Amino acid sequence: MGEPTEIQQNGGRMPDGATRAAPSRTAALRVRVREQRRSPARPRIWFELALIGLSYWIYSLVRNAVPEQESVAQKHAGWIWDLEHSLGIAVERSINHAVDGVGWLITGMNYYYATLHFVVTIGVLVWLYRWHPGRYGAVRTVLFVTTAIALVGFYFFPLAPPRLMTDGGFIDTVKTHGTWGSMASGPATHVSNQFAAMPSMHIGWSTWCGLTIFYLARRTWVRVLGLLYPVATLVVIVATANHFWMDAVGGLLCLLVGFLAARWLYHSWVYALPRVPVREEPPAEPVTVPEQWSEPAVSSARR
């Protein structure tokens, strides 16, 4: 018999087998992660419900645990108000007083502010989960990152909203018109941080909703409503004296970071991901042709 081979000398293993196996496993993992990014799997409903519930609980806990530094918040409000005057955009008080004179309109805006912020956002999440499962995870990530950054702003930049400014001359429309639902006025004030106004998550969330509807909805009128939603929200937060214009700018900046973070994580613009995960697409139907099409070829072959 001949000399033993190198494999036999090493107990049936290549001398560098371990070295070769590791890179192959790493490469396989990279391919799997890449595919997950390009076509995220459908999320599990129980996980999403638990995640949303836990996230909102943490959001409320952190937001309301921020020290209500009234003197600092009033000082910051003065800075914002002076900045807007220097920019020539300090018209919030005029809008607030003008709209307050129309009872039915300001009452509707108070209820809008208190309810649609949550109702529309949850509705868009449900719609995404049901009809765009391949995009849901990425688009939801945008919302979560946006909100997380907002919490940092609430903590490090306490800001009094216009209605609470000392000598600001603004009208607290919820108190004036006796409407319900605001966590920032009336009996609910003791469970909500009064000075978490910068950035405005009413603008961050509504713009997220609007863009999602605009890019993914099919009907033109629905897409138009999607774009109008954040615009209407901007008017409402100013008219009700809950935010300055600059708070809205802060909310948009947070949303921009959220989109950039999702772009980095998924290697794609979130709305460009496949609507349904590739692994869930039905297998392609086999292509069939009439039997007679193949007869000439068979006949010629026999000849």
Rank of each mutant, 00 (worst) to 15 (best):
Q36G: 10
G251H: 05
T26H: 02
V62I: 14
L255S: 08
A232S: 05
L87H: 02
P282Q: 05
M183G: 15
V62L: 15
G250E: 10
K175P: 00
A148K: 02
S55D: 04
L83I: 09
I52W: 10
F47T: 08
N64T: 02
G258M: 05
F157S: 01
K75L: 12
P133K: 00
E295V: 14
A50F: 11
V62F: 11
A27Y: 10
N10C: 07
I213Q: 04
L51E: 10
D82T: 12
A18P: 02
V152F: 11
L225D: 02
L265R: 13
L255Q: 00
P67C: 04
S55H: 12
W221Y: 08
R34L: 13
W46R: 08
T5R: 08
S299R: 15
P290V: 03
A114W: 00
M183N: 15
D172P: 06
H202M: 12
R44S: 13
P296D: 06
G258R: 07
A114V: 03
V33T: 12
S294V: 12
I95Q: 05
S71G: 01
A148C: 10
F195N: 07
A232L: 13
W180S: 14
Y59P: 00
V33L: 15
R303H: 09
L105T: 04
V142Q: 01
E6C: 00
S24Y: 13
A114F: 02
E35V: 08
R34Y: 09
L159I: 01
V191Q: 07
A301V: 11
R32P: 02
W104E: 03
A28C: 06
L151D: 06
T207Y: 01
A261Q: 07
H177P: 08
S192E: 08
L105A: 15
T19Y: 13
Y155D: 04
P187E: 05
A138S: 10
T288I: 05
P230L: 00
V126Q: 03
V191G: 03
T173F: 00
A50H: 04
G153M: 06
L228N: 03
A196Y: 03
F170W: 05
Q69L: 12
Y113F: 12
V298Y: 07
L83K: 08
T179N: 15
F259P: 01
A232P: 05
D172V: 07
W208P: 02
N110I: 11
W221N: 08
T5N: 10
S200Q: 09
L159V: 13
F47G: 08
A160N: 09
V62E: 08
W269K: 09
L260I: 05
Y59F: 15
V270I: 06
R13V: 14
G186F: 10
H85C: 11
R130M: 02
L128W: 06
R44F: 10
Y113E: 13
V224A: 13
V249I: 13
E48D: 07
S182D: 11
A297Q: 12
A28V: 00
S206L: 02
L256A: 13
V257C: 09
T141G: 14
V99E: 03
P286W: 07
A114M: 06
W104K: 06
G123Y: 06
T19H: 12
S55C: 10
L151Q: 07
M109L: 14
A248T: 11
N96V: 01
I45M: 13
I171D: 08
G134D: 00
I58Y: 11
A77M: 04
S300A: 15
D247T: 09
V139E: 07
W221R: 12
H76W: 04
V152N: 00
L105N: 12
